[in-house]
Simulated assay, not measured.
Amino acid sequence: MRHTVDYFLAPQSPWTYLGHERFAALVRETGSAVRVRPMDLGKIFPLSGGLPLPKRAPQRQAYRLLELRRFSEALGVPLHPQPRFFPVAGDPAARLITAVALHDGADAAMKLTGAVTTAVWAQERDIADPGTLAALLAECALDETRLGQSEQPDVQALYDENTQAAIDASVFGAPSYVIDGELFWGQDRLDFVARKLRT
């Protein structure tokens, strides 16, 4: 049975970054299909009890930094726990990934997602800046017109649709993977995702 994964992500999330390449490899290995669905956490957090990072308790913020270092070292994935451009608005990059998914398909959207998340967490680039996003499109050999298209109403509508689909699936954080209606939250749950995809 070939599964389809709804991949709900936030491009500014370090956890999306830490899990992305492993998830991409798992999709390739199992021949699974993926729907790349950037979502607006700003709309999801208030509905699910989540808080943006600056509003979290100090001990939670401190532990987050500890876990980021742990996972970076354990996975061998380079990461700046406090990168130069963070916090950063995720919407421009999310809409760009949405536009690429719409016009170029899931593989291209997966490639761009990897590049965007790496830009934040490994390269310390500003993914809210149009110049950075244009450069990332070029680095991924994607059509430069996608940047302008990402600002069009049809792409915003699809971004909103993805966010509502995440809410309907009880998603509350990024990354989240939904397979046959079953929710898996977090890059540290990819072992369970693998079990599901291999059945």
Rank of each mutant, 00 (worst) to 15 (best):
M1I: 06
R2K: 12
H3F: 06
T4Q: 07
Q12F: 11
S13V: 02
W15D: 04
T16C: 09
G19C: 05
G19F: 01
R22C: 01
F23P: 00
V27R: 04
L41H: 01
F45P: 02
S48K: 15
G49P: 11
G49L: 08
L53D: 04
P54S: 06
A62F: 07
L65K: 12
L68V: 12
R69I: 10
R70Q: 13
A74E: 15
A74G: 05
G76I: 06
H80A: 13
P81F: 05
P83C: 14
F85V: 09
F86G: 00
F86P: 02
V88A: 09
A89V: 14
A89S: 13
G90P: 02
A101T: 04
L112H: 03
T113A: 08
G114K: 03
A115G: 02
V116Q: 05
V116C: 13
V116E: 06
A119H: 00
V120C: 07
W121T: 12
R125F: 09
D126V: 14
A128G: 10
D129C: 04
D129S: 08
G131R: 07
T132N: 10
A135S: 15
L137G: 04
A138T: 10
R146P: 04
G148K: 02
S150I: 01
Q152R: 13
D154R: 14
V155I: 14
V155Q: 00
Y159Q: 04
I167A: 15
P175R: 03
Y177I: 01
G181V: 02
F184E: 06
F184S: 03
Q187F: 07
L190R: 08
V193Q: 09
A194G: 03
R195V: 07
K196H: 09
